[in-house]
């Protein structure tokens, strides 16, 4: 049985958010690692949506970094709004992983989780 990695990634980001909000205790958020958890959650939110989109577009076998652009461009021809949201998620993920000056906060993570959910749900509804 193949694990549904995008769903797991999304669940991880959601659990991190809920644990930071204090509505769940799945992830033990030590204050000194709080920012690291937020950055991790933002990254998983993007990858959950990206992997669902990549599969939907039958681009699973592209594994170089170029596939991120390919997925967004291909999505743009079908649904520009969806592509804009996925690209926004990528921006948030790039900031979370590369920009150590910009400090992501709970709102950034909440936004990433909601945006990711929106993108995933829209893609699933299109593929049914």
């Amino acid at each position: 049985m193949i694990a549904d990695i995008p769903s797991i990634f999304f669940k991880i980001s959601e659990e991190i958010l809920n644990s930071i909000k204090g509505t769940s205790y799945t992830v033990l958020i030590d204050e000194k690692f709080r920012e690291g958890w937020i950055r991790t959650g933002v990254g998983r939110s993007y990858y959950a949506a990206f992997l669902v989109a990549r599969k939907f577009l039958h681009l699973e076998y592209f594994t170089s970094s170029e596939v991120h652009r390919k997925v967004i461009e291909r999505l743009s021809t079908m649904n520009p709004s969806l592509a804009d949201k996925l690209r926004t998620l990528r921006d948030l993920r790039n900031d979370a992983d590369y920009d150590m000056v910009k400090r992501p906060n709970e709102k950034d993570l909440e936004y990433a989780v909601i945006l990711s959910k929106d993108v995933i749900e829209q893609i699933i509804s299109r593929s049914q």
């Binding site: 021809t77 520009p80 804009d84 926004t88 936004y111």
Partner: peptide, 27 residues
């Protein structure tokens, strides 16, 4: 409210220019 803004921009995003320029909304 950011998600509401996405909704209100959906028509303009679907215009021909909107298909050629990416839009991003961030907190």
């Amino acid at each position: 409210r950011i998600m509401e803004l996405w909704d209100s921009l959906s028509d303009i995003i679907n215009e021909s220019v909107g298909k050629k320029i990416y839009i991003t909304i961030k907190p």
